[in-house]
Computed example of a mutant assay.
Amino acid sequence: MEVKLHDIGEGMTEANISSFLVKPGDIVKADDPLIEIQTDKMTAEIPAPKNGIVKEFMVAQGQLVSVGTTLLLLEDVHSIEMNITQPPDSKKENFTVNSDKKKRIMASPYTRKIAREHNVQIKDIEGTGPAGRITDEDVYRYIQLSKKLVETVGQQKEEHKNDQIGEKIPFRGRRKQIAKRMTQSVYTIPHCTLFEEVDVTNLIQFRNELKTTNIHLSLTAFFIKAISLSLKDYKIFNAKLEEEQEFIHILNEHHIGIATDTPEGLIVPVIHHVEQKTITAIHEDLKELTHKAVENALSIKEITGGSFTISNVGPLGGSIGATPIIQHPEVGLMSFHKTKKMPVVVKDDQIAIRSIMNISMSFDHRVADGATAVAFTNRFAQFIKNPNLMLLEMI
Rank of each mutant, 00 (worst) to 15 (best):
T278L: 06
D261F: 01
I279H: 06
P49Q: 11
I282L: 07
L21H: 04
I122F: 03
K147L: 14
K385Y: 11
E196F: 07
Q276C: 08
K157M: 08
Q205I: 12
T280A: 10
M357K: 06
L73E: 13
R379G: 01
I325V: 15
A297E: 13
L229C: 09
N51V: 04
S360C: 03
E244D: 13
S218F: 06
T339C: 09
L316I: 14
V345C: 06
E81K: 08
M58T: 10
I189L: 07
R175H: 09
A352F: 00
K225W: 03
K147Y: 10
I267Y: 01
R133K: 14
Q155K: 12
Q350Y: 05
E243R: 07
V345T: 15
G265P: 01
F20H: 08
K176T: 06
E36H: 06
Q144W: 03
G332W: 07
G132Y: 09
L74W: 00
P315V: 14
G314V: 04
L229E: 14
I359M: 12
Q382W: 05
D285C: 09
E288D: 14
I204L: 12
L203D: 09
R366W: 06
I256K: 06
D285L: 03
E75W: 01
D348V: 09
G370L: 08
I224F: 04
T201C: 05
Y110W: 10
H283R: 05
M357D: 08
I303N: 04
T213I: 13
T96K: 00
T278D: 11
T43M: 15
K287Q: 13
K292F: 06
F383D: 10
E56F: 01
D100I: 07
K91L: 00
N238T: 05
Q164C: 07
N358T: 14
L289F: 03
P88I: 02
E209F: 05
K176P: 02
